[in-house]
Amino acid sequence: MELVSFDWWLFCMRWLHILCGVMWIGHLWYFNFTQTPTVPKIPTELRPAVTKFILPEALFWFRWGAMGTIIFGLILAWMNGYLGSAIKLGIGDHSAHNTTIGLGMWLGTIMWFNVWFIIWPNQKKNIGLVQATPDEVRKAARLAGLTSRVNTLLSIPMLYCMAGVHFY
């Protein structure tokens, strides 16, 4: 395979899409499987180590992982020639492949929206980047946490569609 062939670029986009996706979903699952259940068990005086140091750094890689995943994913779908068909879930095209990847893409897009427009704005209040009253911080943390759980839920069928598309 020559270095500059179309197939190589196609693979390159898939590789970058997967790298960013692991960065994103890895952090999502870290938050939901490790951090959220463990923080309440940490003595109060030690919790700022998580909320002031680990959380801001993890949120950086989390949200930019999400951004890279959707950008490289859209380029990949466009290069594969099924972007338009997948957006309309393959309806009218009699393509189970495009229906499957389209459902995965829509689930991923909802998750990306949740990251950038619900989780991150609310986490900014939680980590002190945006001024807020203690009551606002409590509400913001709750909303960010629940939305993160929704994304964990959606990640299961999303990954079925992404990884299982070749069965269709």
Binding site: G90, I91, A96, L103, L146, R149, I156, Y160
Partner: peptide, 30 residues
Amino acid sequence: MKNPLDSLNQTIGLGVVLTIVVILLIHAIA
């Protein structure tokens, strides 16, 4: 009633249920 999203196990359970719905949807659409 407690929010099922407060439980990690129930979140995963709902994720599996939604996956089955997605599989049925693929077969219904395509």
